[in-house]
């Protein structure tokens, strides 16, 4: 066993810069994903059948095929199909948002269904329209219930973001591979980014716990 971390020290700033890339990628995908997922979940509980069918079909497509395939399709097929030269980061955020929306829509739907139907009736009886009822009364309670599940989804997004290294985004994972290629050392840079991923996930978990405690104030 001979590990030589000394040789990769000059490359450390290069690797650390990848944290920002990975974080920005995850945050954007999570934001777009949850927003789209919320809209999809509303379609899934709608009374209009074609809307429900669309949302369910959408979910089945993204759950039924590998994420890395979806990523490759969006990145390589977009220029061929519509002539737009999509950047790797755009392709990544786009694919991950669509994919995350499919998964989170199921979670959010379950969260909405779990809110007591009396809440809906009370809002209706006060003359509150559908939109403010959903935004102010139902969704806040739904999100509170499913917060742990949404944190899991965000953690999955953060770790799966390593897949975008396959289309050339200079994220943490890709940077480790670049350093490995330059120094011919594989174990050290991969171990370093492994530790970084782990610390980021732990940080996210902690932040979620603080948030959850804050939201439990009304209990």
């Amino acid at each position: 066993m001979n590990l030589d971390f000394g040789q990769i020290i000059p490359s450390l700033p290069f690797i650390l810069n990848g944290i920002l890339v990975t974080l920005r990628f995850t945050v954007l995908s999570a934001l777009f994903g949850f927003t789209l997922g919320t809209l999809l979940s509303l379609l899934k509980i709608s009374n209009i059948k074609p809307l429900r069918w669309f949302a369910e079909f959408y979910t089945s497509i993204f759950r039924g095929t590998p994420l890395i395939l979806q990523l490759a399709l969006v990145y390589f097929a977009t220029p061929q199909l519509i002539g737009y030269k999509i950047t790797p980061i755009e392709a990544g955020v786009f694919t991950f948002s669509l994919n995350s929306a499919a998964y989170s829509s199921e979670t959010i739907r379950a969260g909405i269904m779990a809110v007591d139907k009396g809440q809906r009736e009370a809002s209706m009886s006060l003359g509150v329209a559908y939109r403010p009822m959903m935004l102010d009364i139902i969704l806040p309670q739904a999100f509170k219930n499913i917060l742990p599940a949404l944190v899991n989804e965000t953690i999955a997004l953060l770790k799966d973001s390593a897949l975008v290294s396959t289309i050339g985004v200079l994220d943490l994972m890709r940077r480790a591979q670049v350093v490995a290629g330059q120094t011919f050392l594989y174990f050290e840079p991969l171990l370093v980014v492994g530790v970084i991923y782990y610390i980021m996930v732990m940080g996210l978990t902690q932040a979620a716990q603080v948030l959850e405690r804050r939201m439990r104030r009304s209990d």
Partner: peptide
């Protein structure tokens, strides 16, 4: 119409948040 007709429920249905 509902603005003009108030309702009180068996299980209160207050907004818990």
């Amino acid at each position: 119409v509902r603005q003009n007709v108030g309702m009180v429920f068996q299980h209160f249905n207050l907004f818990p948040h």
